[in-house]
Write a protein that binds this DNA or RNA. Structure first.
Lengths: 412, 412
DNA sequence: AGGCTTTTGTTCACGACTAGAGCATAAACT
DNA sequence: AGTTTATGCTCTAGTCGTGAACAAAAGCCT
């Protein structure tokens, strides 16, 4: 769905440029040029022309492969030292983390800051930091992805019920200096996107990703795309009444599954105050010590998973955030609660339940991927070409290739 | 996602052939050639070559447009009188209906037969009917789509809990004479597919389709594709515990939503026997007379819809089968049950709830669409070309065009 | 009725693209 | 040091879509 087909000769070239660049990005800039040529079913001559063009436009930069078996040594195309950079930020209930990402997925953390949970407190300093880094990096910045712990509507309006955020206009609060495109999305959807690209959902046709933080988020991943497109209003499995509790949820509905899973539920189970994005340490303490609270949490998680497995039949269920720890500490409670809710035909071949390969980094990485998804299109590359008219200005090719600093050791 | 992009000049031509043919199919063979040329952004010359090629391969056949405004009159490309035919069958709990479909979607019903609800009873005669029609139509048959009222696993294994079908091997029971490809799918998923192509979900990014028959089926439609791909094991929203009843379901799970919605639920509500695919007339009588049973059914439908709207935020919810009648007879009960389960942010802009545009025909039409989806690909057209080597064997072009019977008045 | 206008179908020269073969290159192997 | 092997580069051939010029067929106007 994402990559549309070419219909003219011109679009054909553009399309192959995108395919090559995406292949480099998706493999983490680890495949050799000859490998890529084979994978993409290109003629060696075609690959030659494409790589040369992309290198001249500062999109790719080739380096010698560290080892070979025989024959003429091949090169590894990776990010250009002056190439595109995606900014990504993960805004949690109590802190945010900002990072710069190169093509291929290398992440450089630019800053981490706690905040007070209010919209202004969370986003004002962030906007300044983004503006500063953008000024420093210039035209290299090709977009900003923002992960947030609540439903995101079109235009970047965000609601986080347990923080009291009501239709918070994120683009506005970030100020006018935010780069374009500005992609605001749900943290769970982003985590799922990252899992689909670089984690345990890679190559999986239908997967289910669940992100457990203060709240519970869940989203279906189909053919590498989280449902609701990572910018939409999906990813809200946490607000389905799957566990049969009639408790009113802060979102305004009744009986939401998310009431029984996550840090807030742990705190409530032991009688502590919860909500407002406070109490991460206490929750982690409960998680580490209270067998009973953990079992209740894991059981509720299992019942909901079973319901979703019935409906969607995923091949794999992945857990991130506190999910992996719940599974390790109370795996039997989880699976035991699953069983009775499963359809008989699902019990024969239940999906694997796995812990995320990316841990707490998923949301940030997904925000990055969404920026590169927008960039790695015919339109995105056309924009880059236009904003970099001075392709080969001063140095001959041989010199620039030989003397430039290798991409992956260079600070961003 | 379905149509992959071309990478060589040759694939480019194949890709444009598919695009043109699909455009003809999707518009119901009602658009003129000049309209199609504009819609697909083709040069007139290119369209000329493409249409001529497709006509020579017996895929298209042009007829004069009935009316014009001014200028040279244009033609309307439609199905070729010897063109491809998709066979489609809707197998319900108590009867099946077989049809032949031309490119563009014109349906000719070939037969309707009640059966006894056993796998053999349902499928043996059907297999014979398919084989007979296939022999008659020869190479024109490009596939068979089979809609069934239960979960379908890969390979065509079907379970229908309330009929006692356990891993019924549909391809095997249909016998060896079934055409290829043989696409076995869930009736709800097919109905949703048809709704997405020719009904109220056309052009909708995220839609939810619910099919109410004896049982309840539900599936999400994203960008024109039902989740689980119309042949998968999705489309089972009916087996999520959304209504909070702890009743054991025949599927082996507990508290399934589908226990409370549909003909079986209506019969149970008034104390009649249910299950086994019997009692369609009684259920319709209950539906027409028992206010209370209908309200209970509609309320359960509404509660489940709200839960799914929370999770997926569809733009439109469409109902087929008995759904439209439930909505007409007890719309307030339905919406009233929806309200408290909805998240506050969903209440502001709730999705439209609409009745299907295709009625009970949806599953059959969806089965057809799935066959044409497989045919309208570069591979499918290549196979057709190979199996029809005698392209222009006896008659000059002018004569064959002038004298051949118009496609849409010709019996199949 | 006859000429003009409008729209569409057809043909062809042109530019852009990829495939594939032949050659050059650079390493490992013998 | 020569051979083998795999890769990169260059050039020709074939295919495709474009767009302009031309032909065709209808409605419109006088």
């Amino acid at each position: 769905m994402s990559v549309n087909g070419a219909t003219t000769s011109g679009e054909l070239r553009a399309h192959n440029r995108v395919r090559l660049l995406r292949a480099v990005h998706d493999c983490g800039a680890r495949h050799t040029r000859s490998q890529l040529t084979r994978d993409l079913r290109l003629a060696r001559g075609t690959a030659s022309v494409l790589v040369a063009g992309l290198a001249e436009e500062r999109l790719l930069h080739e380096e010698p492969a560290p080892e070979h078996v025989r024959g003429r040594p091949t090169q590894i195309p990776g990010p250009h030292p002056d190439g595109p950079i995606a900014l990504a930020v993960d805004v949690r209930e109590d802190a945010w983390e900002l990072a710069a990402c190169e093509l291929g997925g290398r992440v450089t953390v630019l800053g981490v800051r706690p905040h007070d949970g209010t919209p202004e407190g969370a986003l004002a300093l962030l906007g300044e930091a983004v503006a500063a880094h953008r000024a420093r990096l210039g035209h290299r910045v090709v977009g900003l992805g923002v992960a947030l712990a609540g439903p995101v509507r079109h235009g970047g309006l965000v609601d986080i019920a347990h923080l009291g955020w009501r239709s918070v206009d994120v683009p506005h609060l970030l100020g006018g200096a935010a780069p374009s495109p500005l992609i605001v999305g749900n943290d769970t959807a982003f985590a799922a996107l990252a899992e689909a690209r670089r984690g345990r959902l890679r190559g999986v046709r239908v997967g289910l990703h669940l992100h457990v933080d203060f709240d519970l988020g869940g989203v279906l991943v189909v053919d590498g795309h989280p449902l609701g497109g990572a910018t939409g209003v999906g990813a809200e499995f946490g607000h389905m009444p799957l566990t049969g509790s009639g408790r009113p949820c802060l979102c305004g509905a009744i009986g939401c599954w998310g009431m029984d899973v996550g840090a807030n539920a742990l705190l409530r189970h032991v009688g502590l105050a919860y909500g407002g994005g406070r109490g991460r340490e206490q929750a982690e303490h409960v998680l580490a010590t209270s067998e009973q609270a953990v079992a209740a949490n894991a059981g509720a998680l299992g019942r909901g998973i079973a319901a979703l497995v019935n409906a969607h039949d995923p091949e794999v269920v992945t857990l991130s955030g506190h999910g992996p720890e719940l599974r390790e500490r109370a795996g039997e409670a989880l699976l035991g609660a699953c069983e009775p809710v499963l359809m008989a035909i699902r019990r024969e071949r239940p999906p694997r339940i796995e812990s995320s390969a990316l841990g707490w980094r998923g949301s940030l990485l997904g925000a990055m991927e969404s920026v590169f998804d927008a960039f790695l299109t015919t339109e995105g590359l056309e924009l880059w070409r236009k904003s970099h008219p001075d392709q080969a200005r001063d140095t001959p090719d041989a010199q620039s290739v030989t003397h430039s600093t290798p991409a992956r050791e260079r600070p961003v």
